[in-house]
Design a protein around this nucleic acid. Structure first.
Lengths: 192, 192
DNA sequence: ACCGTAACACTAACGGTTAGCCTTTCGGAA
DNA sequence: TTCCGAAAGGCTAACCGTTAGTGTTACGGT
């Protein structure tokens, strides 16, 4: 009934990619707010409704790879080397994310995001989702109930580290500074 | 040129209050999404544009007292008794906020907020603003630069405590649990 | 060869938000 | 007291993101 591999899947993926590429190009050329959904759809040669069947919102066009970030975090916990302590594993994952975002080529996109309140707000709500996924992964890894306050707290703190680093002048140093605090917070729980 | 006290100010405040009261009443009666801005404006007997000159968005109608929360946090730092340690002062402020939100009479409003993604998202972005104000207050109180990572981190953590407590089954206990972690994080900084 | 359905298109609208422009009303200076 | 400037409010009309409703095409599995 399923087993995706087929022409359909390829076409769908191609359409999605074409929309995302077109959107990002237009946004960078003319500015995020100056480009309307109808512009993107027309330039990508798809209907507006098609665009929205691939992306839930205009902002989602910019954060196309959001899923990767989320899965990276979860895997940093679940798939870490046996015996590797939790917090350092998370720290290096956050380091990787920050490096990815501060890479030279990525500057224009992140400038655009910082210039748009709508995009900043969307990113924050995205991070909330990431924190919840991470909390679930932590709870699973530690064998405690999902609602565990300690897990949810650490998850939020880790996401905060990413957010704070992104706004800092020296992102890498900021990650280390915040993680020193997280390490202490973690040690203060029953679980640490 | 200014010195507010006048009939104009009173009328303006009255209009604002009337709009907020009407909006909250309609939202609770019919549900947040089922009530349109035009409904609120009509029922409050003002023009839509007038409504938007008092409130920046539909969501802002629900969080009318947002300012009070923000100032409370800042004052908890700035106006605390001389010699009183920082973190406990923040903890009792958060306790007060949580008690305020979990008060019996407030339940319908918070249920409504939890039921609406738009309102939840707005609340989160509101908290971001609060965290930034708190970070500034902390930096001022401690005599460190505004950009100080430690201040910004603690501010975020404190706001997280509020957010986590609001979602917890036992909000008061959650506040204490998170603040044990914050205390440890604070002690791990240069400032603590 | 055929059927079910996923992908896409088109039209219209809805609802929040804003721009442009005009009227009223108050506060304070002349 | 009078009058001017500005603030508050109003009206109209639109913009823009988003969705519902309704088809149409083309692919995949049977």
């Amino acid at each position: 009934m399923n087993e995706p591999s087929g022409r359909r899947e390829r076409k769908k993926a191609a359409t999605r990619q074409k929309i995302a590429d077109t959107a990002l190009r237009l946004f960078l050329e003319r500015g995020y707010e100056a480009v309307g959904i109808r512009d993107v759809a027309a330039e990508a040669d798809v209907a507006v409704t098609t665009l929205f069947s691939h992306f839930a919102s205009k902002e989602a066009l910019v954060f196309e790879q959001d899923r990767g970030f989320e899965q990276g975090l979860v895997r940093a916990v679940a798939d870490r080397a046996p015996g590797e302590p939790l917090i350092p594993a998370l720290r290096s994952e956050i380091h990787a994310l920050v490096r990815h975002c501060t890479a030279p080529g990525a500057a224009p996109v992140w400038n655009m995001i910082e210039a748009s309140p709508a995009l900043r707000e969307y990113e924050e709500s995205m991070r909330l989702r990431h924190a919840e996924s991470l909390a679930a992964a932590l709870a699973a890894d530690l064998g405690v109930p999902e609602a565990s306050i300690a897990c949810r707290t650490i998850a939020r703190f880790v996401i905060d580290a990413y957010a704070l680093a992104r706004e800092a002048e020296q992102p890498e140093a900021a990650v280390d500074e915040v993680f020193r605090m997280i390490e202490a917070a973690w040690a203060a729980t029953d679980l640490g």
